[in-house]
Computed example of a mutant assay.
Amino acid sequence: MAESNGAVKTHRKAYLPLESNPQVFTQLINNLGVTALEFQDVFSVDEPELLAMVSRPVYALVLVFPTTPMYEEQIAKEEATRDSYTGSGAGEDVIWFEQTIYNACGLYGILHSVSNGDAANFIEPGSALARLLATCVPLAPHERALALEASEELEIAHATAGVQGDTAAPASAEDVVDYHYVAFIKSKSGHIYEMDGCKKGPVNRGAVLSADEDILSESALKFVREYIHREKDGNVNFSLMALVRA
Rank of each mutant, 00 (worst) to 15 (best):
A159M: 13
A130D: 09
N121G: 11
S151R: 04
D166W: 15
A171C: 09
T135R: 12
A159P: 00
L132T: 04
P170F: 14
Q164L: 15
F122S: 13
E143S: 13
A168R: 08
R144F: 00
E149W: 06
S151L: 04
A120F: 11
L132I: 14
T167H: 11
E153M: 08
A147V: 00
A147R: 09
G126M: 05
P138V: 03
L132Q: 06
L139P: 05
N121P: 10
G162C: 01
I123V: 14
I156G: 12
R144I: 01
G126D: 09
E124H: 09
T160C: 07
A140C: 07
A134R: 08
D166Q: 10
S151V: 03
A159V: 07
C136D: 00
R144A: 00
A119K: 09
G165L: 10
A161Q: 02
A140M: 15
A157K: 06
R131V: 05
E152D: 12
Q164I: 10
A171P: 05
N121W: 12
E155W: 06
N121Q: 15
S151T: 08
L139Y: 03
A171D: 06
L154P: 02
P141F: 02
L154S: 07
T135G: 01
G165T: 12
E143R: 11
V137W: 01
A147S: 04
T167M: 11
L148D: 00
A134K: 07
E149I: 11
E155T: 07
E124I: 14
C136G: 00
G162R: 01
A147C: 03
I156W: 03
P141C: 08
T160R: 10
A161H: 06
A128C: 14
A120L: 03
H158K: 14
A159I: 01
L139V: 03
R131M: 10
A168M: 04
L139S: 02
L129W: 11
A161R: 00
A157N: 09
A171Q: 08
A169G: 13
L139A: 10
A119P: 12
L148K: 02
N121Y: 14
A168W: 10
F122Y: 15
E149F: 04
L132Y: 06
S151W: 02
A157F: 00
